[in-house]
Design a binder for these strands. Sequence first.
RNA 1: GUGGGCGUAGUGUAGUGGUUAACACGUCAGGUUGUGGCCCUGAAGAUCGCGGGUUCAAUUCCCGUCGCUCACCCCA
Length: 419
Amino acid sequence: MPEIQAPRGTQDILPEEQPWWDYIRTTAERICGEFRYLPIDTPLFEDVGLFKRTVGDVTDIVQKEMYVFEDRGGQQLALRPEATAAVCRAYIEHGMHNQPQPVRLFSIAPMFRYDRPQAGRQRQFHQFNVEAIGDESASVDAETIEILWRLYEELGLTGLTLHLNTIGDSACRPRYLEALQDYYRDKLDKVCDDCRGRVERNPLRLLDCKNERCQPVIAGAPAITEYLCDECAEHFGQLKSYLDALGIPFVENRTLVRGLDYYTRTVYEVQPQEEGGQSTIGGGGRYDGLIEMIGGKPTPGVGFATGMERIILNLKRQEVPLPDRRTLDLFVVAQSAEARVAAFKLASDVRKAGHSAVAGSAGRSFKAQMRHADSLGARYAAIIGERELSAGNVALKRLEDGAQEEVAIGDVATKLAAP
RNA sequence: GUGGGCGUAGUGUAGUGGUUAACACGUCAGGUUGUGGCCCUGAAGAUCGCGGGUUCAAUUCCCGUCGCUCACCCCA
């Protein structure tokens, strides 16, 4: 082990891993293009208040997972733990309410949370993030869910379940939370320590407690659906019919809540079949109050985030084949010292013609260069020796079957283009 | 933040309280005259994660620490 290594919970994404990233990125960008979502990048760090106000002061993300630091000017900053708040900040800051609504945005970017790393969870991780800001209709909720669903589908992931729920809004949720608290107050002896604290602090989270002993209590708890105001109930109903129309299957899950405070109405998560704690690969929902929390005019929004590393984990688990691999068209072998310059120049010319080419390293033997060509997986080897050099030719060898022919040095690029 | 498993060359592994820590893959070099894959030979490459302790002696035993990993938790 070297003395200095990558910080805990971070990783180098090596060349052999890159095709996975490339695959997801290009697929996501293509789909976003179809839906006319435009790319946006925001800073890696923000004023710490942005996240405290939106994500929520009592959430784990803010309380114990945020990378907070003070810069030399005394400003309290935080490495962003999630994307939505920052995108909304940018929406306000750049007056995007003057654009046609909703403003449709996406990004693929690293996030930071100080957490114990394990499978599918690291301290620096990457999210594909989609936001539609400025439209409260349920069709926009459905549209973002469709993007997420299309992504998984086109990547080739199977066996996914979309869990859907609504958590009401500021009109109806308080009434529900009261009912929930009342229900729990005389059952404090039957629930776990965490839940005892949650009753007063964050009652919604009572519903998704995983503790075994809390399950019977959760099962008997009042359902939000009984308390929704007409608008929220209608919104939820509309969303479901949009999803039905799109043929996107979902499971209503009334215990689904999310760990960020800014959500209103729609919340959802996507789970793969494989069991395990870190199973959620994507999730999102509506956040109609968020922009107001950070000083903007009341503006609705919806969006989701999906974890790049978790997608890759599942692609590998499901043995989804990657499209094509990176190839090398030509390896140029210089048989003699005199041929090196010509070989080097040939590689350069071939590249300018749009092919990939590598010139054999000077000082290596002929045989070593041939071996190198083979191990790099080159399609062709161009051999330049005394004879070829004086004739202005190369010996062009197709490595797959060994077929070889003399080709004028200027014709190599066109030969490579031919099948 | 809590608990379990692990930590030996670039990678995957073996091994032992006591001389030069083993094997495979990979890398590099060779296998004579201008040709890769297979095969053969050779070389380089490990302060046995780090620190402390026990011991005449520790890579091997103990403790701590860091890291990896799995679960809890949290979430993407």
